[in-house]
Write a protein that binds this DNA or RNA. Structure first.
Length: 272
DNA sequence: CCCTGAACCTGACCGC
DNA sequence: TGCGGTCAGGTTCAGG
């Protein structure tokens, strides 16, 4: 699924719908990770005033509040012509005044399609989130301070949305390769210099992936139905069984907190 | 509080 | 061809 770059790619592709009015709503399957909010049916007549992103959430602003979309592991939002028959797993369809329809597609149904009333500014889903990676609040000092009491592997640490939002399994693995940090290293043994490298590398990798249109492994497509190209630059993720692109050492696979993790034992050595 | 593993769900792929 | 097992970009919750 979509990590931050794929969500941002989706948001950028959907900018043309800003200013359009929702003509009708078709909820074909409401059973996502949480049920699709009943208020979603009342979106007809509302204008989409803005589309923002917070972490991996997309927030569509209307005069009465926001509808929030999370793509989960397998979700995508696409614009299509109204004549195109709904595909299997197209769960929510919004017909727009511009003549296109916006379709939420999600085979695994780990995604979310929720209504947030404008009186409810601090929705619990958004309240506890850490800083955006491109915000000024995301600093080496922030990483260093939070990591002092954490003995979890550094990979789990940078994937924790209380620490920084948007870093998932692909970009965590790639970030650690670029910084030369072993993914199993306990977070509380990071130095301030390590945290500085992590901060700049996370920003660099996510930014680079956004410019490439995200990573397509099997099914991610942007709002026009096209894949991303960052997977051509992956150094470790999904490359188990292959050799390091830098030093040719066989890459190593390990499961960390239930997630597949690939790293180079030579470029990312365990510290003494 | 902290950490790990299971759960949610469907589809693709692999070995037999 | 079919069957069972494993894996997949995320997040939350129970339990140790």
């Amino acid at each position: 699924m979509p990590e931050l770059p794929e969500v941002e790619t989706t948001r950028l592709g959907l900018r043309p719908v800003v200013g359009q009015t929702i003509r009708s709503v078709d909820v074909r399957n409401a059973s996502l990770r949480q049920p699709v909010s009943p208020e979603i049916h009342d979106l007809a007549g509302q204008v989409i005033q803005d589309i923002r992103r917070r972490g991996k959430y997309l927030l569509f602003q209307t005069p009465r509040g926001w509808f929030l979309v999370h793509l989960g592991m397998s979700g995508s939002l696409r614009l299509s012509t109204p004549e195109e028959a709904p595909r299997k797993h197209d769960h929510v369809l919004l017909m727009l005044s511009g003549g296109m329809s916006l379709r939420f597609h999600d085979p695994r149904r780990f995604g979310l399609f929720l209504w947030i009333d404008s009186r409810n500014e601090t929705h619990p889903l958004l309240a506890a989130m850490g800083p955006e990676p491109f915000d000024l609040a995301f600093t080496a000092d922030h990483l260093f301070a939070l990591s002092r009491t954490r003995s979890i592997p550094v990979k789990s640490f940078i994937m924790d949305n209380h620490v920084v939002v948007g870093v998932g399994n692909i970009y965590a693995s790639e970030t650690l390769f670029m910084t030369g940090l072993n993914p199993l290293m306990p977070a509380n043994s990071l130095t301030l210099l390590d945290c500085n490298m992590l901060r700049s590398t996370i920003r660099h990798i996510l930014g680079q992936a956004i410019r490439r249109g995200g990573t397509t492994l099997r099914d991610f497509v942007n709002s026009s139905g096209n894949p991303g190209y960052f997977q051509q630059e992956l150094m470790v993720y999904g490359r188990e069984g292959n050799h390091c692109r830098i030093c040719n050492t066989p890459l190593q696979w390990v499961r960390i907190a239930g997630r597949s993790t690939v790293f180079c034992p030579s470029c990312q050595p365990v510290r003494p």
